[in-house]
Nucleic acid binder design. Structure first.
Lengths: 202, 202
DNA sequence: CCCAAATGTGAGGAATCCTTCAGGTTTCAG
DNA sequence: CTGAAACCTGAAGGATTCCTCACATTTGGG
C-alpha cells in the first residue's frame, strides 16, 4: 500500500472548505461515473479546484477513496451503535427488530455511495473501514446468540451467525437499492424480523 | 455499447484451440489480478498468443469479458434448470430444498470467477447474461409462491419473492466464497431450507 | 507439391491518466 | 501595511493501456 496520509493539513477555513468540496465531489463522481471514470482531474473539476490543490491534501487517488470510505463507514457505524446501545436486556424478538431497523437506517444514509463503494470499487480497494463494519456486525450477532443460547433452535452458533449476518445485510442492502418502495412502511422490518426470529427460536 | 461480435470466426481446429486458450486466460487473469490489471497484453501473454491474435477474434476488451460472462452464466443456468425440471409437483419443503441445493451447486462451478465477475467488474460491464440469471431466479420463485399461495404465511407475494431470492442468493454466494468448510455436509442446505420454509409457510 | 485462405506476430500510434512543480494569489499575525 | 506562510493553478512529464497494421507462418484442398 502506498502513502495514505495527507501531505498538508488544512489550517485555514478556506482550505477546510476545499477539502470538504473535494470529498463531496469524489462521492458524486464515484456515484455518477463509477470508479473507472472517476479521474482525479474530473473530481477536481467538479470540486471547483485544480488538480494541484487536490494533491496538496491527498497524496494519491487511493488516499482520496480511503478518506471517503472512512467518512461513510463512520456515519453508518454511528447510527448502528446508537441503536444497539439502547437494547440492553431486550427480548430476542425486540433486539432483532431494533437491529434490522438500524441496518436499514444505516444503509439509507447514502445508498448510492454505499452501492458504489461495495460493488464498484475493486475488492482490493475496499479498505479496512468498510470491511470492519461487517466484522463488527458479525461479532455483535455472535454475542447476541450466545446470550439467548437456550432459546435457540440450533446449537451451531457459528453457522447461525453466518446466516443471520449475511441475510440481514443482503436484504437491507438490496431493499435500499432496488426496492425503495418497501421503505415507507414498517412492513419490511416486520418481515425480516419474522424471517430471522422464526429461524433462530424454538 | 461498442461492437461485440467477433471479427473473424475460427474455422480450423488450431484457431478454435486459440479462442479457448484466450477465454481461459481471461478467466485466470481476471481472478488473479482483478479487472483493473487484466490488460489485453497480459491476457494474450498468459494464453501464449500475441495481442494481435486476440484482436482477431474479439474486437475489443469488452467483447472478451462478455464472451466469458456468457460462458459462465450458461454453465450456471444449465445446472439450475436441470434441477428445477425434476421437481414437478414436489411439496413446498422438497422444492425449496432442491432449489437451495441447486443454487449452491451453480455457485460452486467456478466460485472465484463468479466472485470476480460479480464484485470486481464495474456494474456497467456486468452484462445481460449474468443479470438474467437473477431475473430468471426471481421469476421462478414467483411462480412457486403463486402455486403454493394457500399455504403461505403472508399474502404479499411481491415482498416474499424479494426476500427469498435475495436471501438464498446472498447465502449461497457468501458460503461458497467465505465458508467453503460449510459445503462438505448437507447441514448448510438444511439450515437455509429451514430458514426459508419457516418464513414462508404457516 | 502448391498456393490461397486462415492464422499468427509484435512494434508502436493514439489516447488516457496520475502526479509533479514552478510560479501565482490570498490570508493573517505583528 | 508588510512579509511570510498558507493556499491555489494548470501545463506537461512519465507511465500505462487499447488497439492497428504490415508482414510472417501454417494449413488443407486440388
Amino acid at each position: 500500500m502506498t502513502q495514505l496520509d495527507p501531505r498538508r493539513k488544512p489550517r485555514q477555513s478556506r482550505s477546510r472548505a476545499t477539502v470538504d468540496a473535494i470529498l463531496q465531489a469524489t462521492a458524486q463522481v464515484l456515484v455518477r461515473d463509477g470508479y473507472q471514470k472517476a479521474t482525479t482531474n474530473r473530481i477536481a473539476e467538479r470540486a471547483g479546484v485544480s488538480v494541484g490543490t487536490l494533491y496538496q491534501y491527498f497524496p494519491n487517488k487511493d488516499a482520496l477513496v480511503v478518506a471517503l470510505c472512512e467518512q461513510h463507514s463512520d456515519e453508518m457505524m454511528t447510527l448502528l451503535s446508537a441503536s444497539i446501545a439502547e437494547l440492553q436486556d431486550a427480548t430476542a424478538e425486540r433486539a432483532t427488530r431494533v437491529i434490522v431497523r438500524a441496518m436499514l437506517q444505516a444503509h439509507a444514509v447514502n445508498p448510492e455511495l454505499h452501492e458504489a463503494i461495495i460493488s464498484n470499487l475493486p475488492k482490493e480497494k475496499q479498505f479496512e473501514q468498510i470491511l470492519a463494519v461487517n466484522a463488527q456486525a458479525e461479532a455483535m450477532v455472535r454475542v447476541f446468540l450466545e446470550h439467548h443460547r437456550e432459546r435457540l433452535a440450533t446449537d451451531n452458533i457459528d453457522m447461525a451467525a453466518f446466516i443471520v449476518v449475511n441475510t440481514v445485510e443482503a436484504l437491507t442492502h438490496a431493499a435500499v437499492i432496488e426496492r425503495p418502495d418497501f421503505l415507507g412502511t414498517e412492513e419490511l422490518v416486520d418481515e425480516i424480523t419474522r424471517l430471522i426470529c422464526r429461524y433462530l427460536l424454538k
